[in-house]
Design a protein around this nucleic acid. Structure first.
Length: 577
DNA sequence: GCCGTTTTCGGCCCGACTGTTTTCAGTCG
């Protein structure tokens, strides 16, 4: 069985949890967590890297010891150290850590004093009022734990960015209207435009006496106030979404915005540079000098933070400590793509198949977005549930588009198709109809369960067809719903570059397929990307924004993306020889 | 357990809020 990066990461996380419950050195614990993150963030399989003879201890936070442990996991599927740990501390105890209120210290107490190691036992003990007798616990803690056990599902839920946006926007405009609110922003992973967000961090600066905290905890969607202070409150909204509001003085707003935007790893790295320059950086500003004689030197603007440590301004999307700090130091940050760079959309459906808008409506909507082109790419015949097009119906659509194009000025409808890649790697429509099109989006919609080797072969064989232009939603994943299918995207990207094919970054917020790390891999390999919405009705064309977010997280520039080109240049690029 | 132009030992980011305390530990981000 191949060992995936997240198999390794999970083992390291488990070790970190168990070590922490066992009261190990906190930095040793952190080393395991860092390693888990590093491994998870690799776009390539770490097992594959090792097979190619790469030295894993070159990876950040992986030293000789952890490189050896990774090797052991790859070879044996497990780790002796973990098994030894589990002999001393029940592995189940880590389930208890998933409850808010319970950290390693209290879990250890519960285990030592009451012999409890599972959620069920904990539920019983809470019901029998045994927890409140423990040192460091009381009636309130016990009640909270009981409550949390009631709602506990066992799985971490991260909300899709698009859903978070629907929650944030009304809340933000509500808070903006409160008297004395000067500045307000959403920070955290939402501001970094991560594809999913855990909870929301809102930051505000106010005139003294502003009742913003009171308004916040009384917002109509608040289900429970989890904590409330002068500068920080936390609430849970109906539906379970957790929101923090932090209030900081205007003079520290920039420092706080940087601090709360994160990521944590990025912040730590920036602070470390600060420490070397004898600077203390926290959410209140940037301070020079030793304890006791500190002098604030900046913090009003976010730019101040970067300037103080000698870095170019780093866009929130890049702040993951994935090399952006080094790039900023050397003036080598990418000039990230923006929504304004996009000249059109290359993946859209209409009523003719499974869409909900007509061709004319889609074209009008695209024009209203300021686009110069829109590709109509219906499903092909294999996708029967979507009434996919056979050659005859596709030819009829081609004629229809030609007619509209004849009377359109300054706008071009591209004749396209989203053609299925069949199991044997052939395309679902014959070449003699594909050659009449401006472009093809080629997608896998069936046989998701092939081995990585077979799936990779299937897709690359499809690319051998000279009419293959763009690989649609390359991994097939649906966020929180369907895992990506097994495929070696590195090989696929190399094959695509050699053949002059592009990969789609599907901008639909449920897909966002490619991931940010894969976008970056594409850039490094030198294969071009197309950002498309896969719209099924006019309103969805606006999802381009989420694709741009993801592309920026993947370090993409306008030049890396084909649908930033002028119509004529793009048509030329799409012709393969 | 990692890391290094303060380099092989000794650091490793730092503050708010809560509950249980009676001056602070634990949790969280």
């Amino acid at each position: 069985m191949p060992i995936h990066n997240n198999d390794i990461a999970r083992i390291f996380e488990k070790i970190a949890d168990l070590l922490e419950i066992g009261d190990a050195n906190e930095f040793r614990v952190r080393a395991y967590r860092n390693a888990a993150r590093t491994v998870n963030d690799q776009p390539q399989s770490v097992a594959g890297m090792r097979e190619q003879g790469k030295d894993l201890s070159d990876l950040p936070g992986i030293g000789k010891d952890l490189a050896g442990k990774i090797g052991e996991i790859i070879d044996t599927g497990t780790l002796e150290m973990l098994e030894d740990l589990e002999k001393k501390i029940p592995a189940e105890l880590t389930d208890l850590l998933t409850l808010p209120q319970l950290g390693p210290k209290r879990v250890a107490t519960i285990y030592k004093e009451l012999g409890i190691s599972s959620l069920d036992e904990l539920r019983e003990a809470a019901a029998n009022q045994e927890l409140r007798k423990l040192k460091g616990f009381g009636k309130k803690s016990e009640e909270k734990i009981r409550e949390e056990l009631g709602r506990h599902t066992g799985e971490e839920v991260r909300t899709k960015l698009s859903e978070a946006q629907q929650i944030v926007e009304p809340l933000l405009s509500y808070l903006k209207q409160v008297e004395g609110v000067k500045q307000i922003d959403v920070a955290g992973s939402y501001r970094r435009r991560k594809e999913t967000v855990g909870d929301l961090d809102i930051l505000a600066s106010i005139k003294s006496g502003s009742p913003v905290m009171k308004y916040f905890v009384n917002y109509e969607d608040v289900e429970e106030v989890l904590s409330q202070g002068k500068t920080k409150s936390t609430v849970r909204l109906r539906g379970g979404f957790q929101v923090d509001l932090r209030v900081v003085p205007q003079i520290a707003y920039g420092a706080a915005l940087h601090y709360f935007t994160g990521s944590k790893e990025h912040n730590v790295a920036v602070r470390q540079i600060g420490v070397k320059k004898d600077l203390k950086i926290n959410e209140y500003g940037i301070f020079k000098g030793k304890d006791g004689s500190e002098e604030r030197i900046a913090g009003r603007k976010e730019e101040d933070v970067f300037e103080a440590v000698g870095l170019d301004y780093i866009s929130p999307e890049l702040r993951e400590n994935h090399g952006e700090i080094e790039a900023a130091k050397n003036g080598e940050l990418p000039k990230l793509i923006t929504l304004e760079d996009i000249r059109g959309d290359l993946h859209a459906h209409t009523k003719e198949t499974d869409g909900r808008s007509t061709l004319e409506e889609m074209v009008e909507a695209a024009r209203n977005l300021g686009y110069s082109f829109l590709a109509i790419t219906e499903h092909s015949q294999a996708v029967t549930v979507a009434k996919g097009l056979d050659p005859k119906r596709l030819r009829r659509q081609i004629e229809q588009i030609d007619k509209i194009n004849d009377r359109e000025h300054g706008f071009r409808i591209f004749k396209g198709i989203e053609v299925d890649i069949l199991e044997d790697g052939s395309l679902d429509l014959p070449d003699d109809v594909l050659k009449e099109l401006d472009l093809t989006v080629c997608s896998v919609h069936s046989k998701f369960d092939l081995s990585a080797e077979k799936q990779t072969e299937r897709v690359i064989r499809a690319m051998d067809n000279p009419y293959f232009n763009i690989l649609g939603h390359p991994s097939g994943r649906l966020i929180n719903e369907r895992r990506p299918f097994e495929i070696d995207l590195e090989k696929v990207m190399e094959a695509a570059r050699e053949r002059g094919c592009a990969l789609e970054l599907n901008a639909h917020p449920d897909r966002l397929d490619l991931t940010d790390t894969h976008c970056r891999m594409a850039k490094e390999i030198g294969v071009k990307i197309v950002i498309s919405t896969d719209s099924h009705y006019t309103e969805e064309l606006k999802n381009m924004r989420f694709g741009i977010d993801q592309a920026r997280r993947g370090w993409l520039e306008a030049d890396d993306v084909l649908n930033t080109r002028r119509t004529a240049d793009l048509l030329k690029l799409l012709k393969r020889n």
